[in-house]
């Protein structure tokens, strides 16, 4: 009884010092983020006439900083939705991809690439961390070197290789091309698998388990939390990337590319800050929803894959 009270007291006092300090920092951080996002949403519901040309006492002052004064308008979203298309040239015809088609392309691109990069990094991380061959060390060092080495102007040669393998401008092609382990994910898996004690495998080995089933049934399930985290990270970064799909799958415009184009549109009706921001918000919506859903899943997985340190 006495001890319990003591613990509680200690806990409370340290919460006061340490936790409050961090909480303050975090609150400031959250505030800056909230204000920016609030401003963004606020701007998207203003008309451009108000944003740029709001008048006070007969003089144009614009209203960039304050709440809408001439009412809320959803017109920017309507315009963004309407103009959020990409045109792709196919032989003699131009094909228009609407926003849903772009989301589908984005999903195919991000899901496929995230899967391939996660699987490849997982497998390589497993192989290099769990098998103490010399070669494993070389692979690890090699990954570190390539991460530090900025490669210049290799895009044309990558396109040429992809074209000669007949995988340029196809989804399976881009999945294969992105399925590389020269990245941080590999290092994360490597560290994760290094942490798992050898006893796990030894015990299984004595039971006569083959290496494949050891990996799949014993070790990988322990790392499921990391797997899903890496997958989500990869998925999100692929979703927001427009340059790679623009170059390697030009016939399948993704939403990030649609947004990039939307940002630089010459169409007068939408070439203004409120509508542009509305366009970005529209594009960000699915990924924010995805994050909100997966965020919960993530926590579950992490507790399932609980491993002692």
């Amino acid at each position: 009884m006495d001890q319990n009270v003591k613990i509680k007291a200690v806990k409370r006092s340290s919460v006061n010092v340490f936790a409050i300090a961090i909480a303050v920092l975090l609150a400031i951080y959250m505030l800056t983020m909230c204000i920016s996002l609030f401003w963004t949403i606020m701007t998207t519901v203003k008309t451009n006439a108000e944003y740029e040309l709001y008048e006070e006492a007969g003089l144009i002052v614009g209203n960039k900083l304050w709440l809408p004064k001439t009412g809320i308008s959803l017109n920017n979203y309507k315009m963004a939705f309407q103009y959020f298309y990409v045109e792709v040239q196919e032989e003699m015809y131009t094909v228009q991809y609407d926003i849903f088609q772009q989301f589908l392309n984005s999903f195919l691109y991000s899901f496929g690439c995230a899967t391939s990069v996660t699987v490849v990094s997982l497998v390589m991380g497993y192989a290099t961390a769990r098998f103490r061959y010399k070669f494993s060390n070389y692979i690890y060092a090699f990954v570190l070197v390539t991460m530090a080495l900025p490669i210049v102007g290799s895009m044309p040669s990558e396109i040429a290789v992809a074209t000669s393998l007949n995988i340029f401008d196809t989804f399976p092609g881009i999945w294969i091309m992105r399925g590389s382990f020269l990245n941080t994910y590999f290092l994360i898996f490597f560290a994760q698998f290094k942490m798992i004690p050898k006893d796990y495998t030894e015990a299984a080995k004595i039971d006569g388990a083959r290496p494949f089933s050891i990996m799949l049934k014993i070790i990988v399930p322990l790392a499921m939390g990391t797997v899903s985290t890496v997958f989500v990270l990869a998925f999100i970064s692929f979703w927001n990337d427009f340059q790679i799909p623009m170059v390697y799958i030009p016939s399948y415009p993704v939403a990030a590319y649609g947004m990039y184009k939307f940002q630089n549109t010459p169409i007068v009706e939408i070439a203004n800050t409120p509508t542009r921001l509305a366009g970005i918000c529209l594009m960000a919506l699915p990924i924010v929803i995805f994050y909100a859903i997966f965020n919960k899943k993530l926590n579950v997985n992490l507790s399932v894959g609980g491993v002692k340190g």
Binding site: E87, Y93, T94, V95, Q96, D98, F100, Q101, L104, F171
Partner: peptide
């Protein structure tokens, strides 16, 4: 996906 809905302009 190439069979997906696209509008020919």
């Amino acid at each position: 996906s190439s069979c997906g809905k696209k509008i020919k302009k």
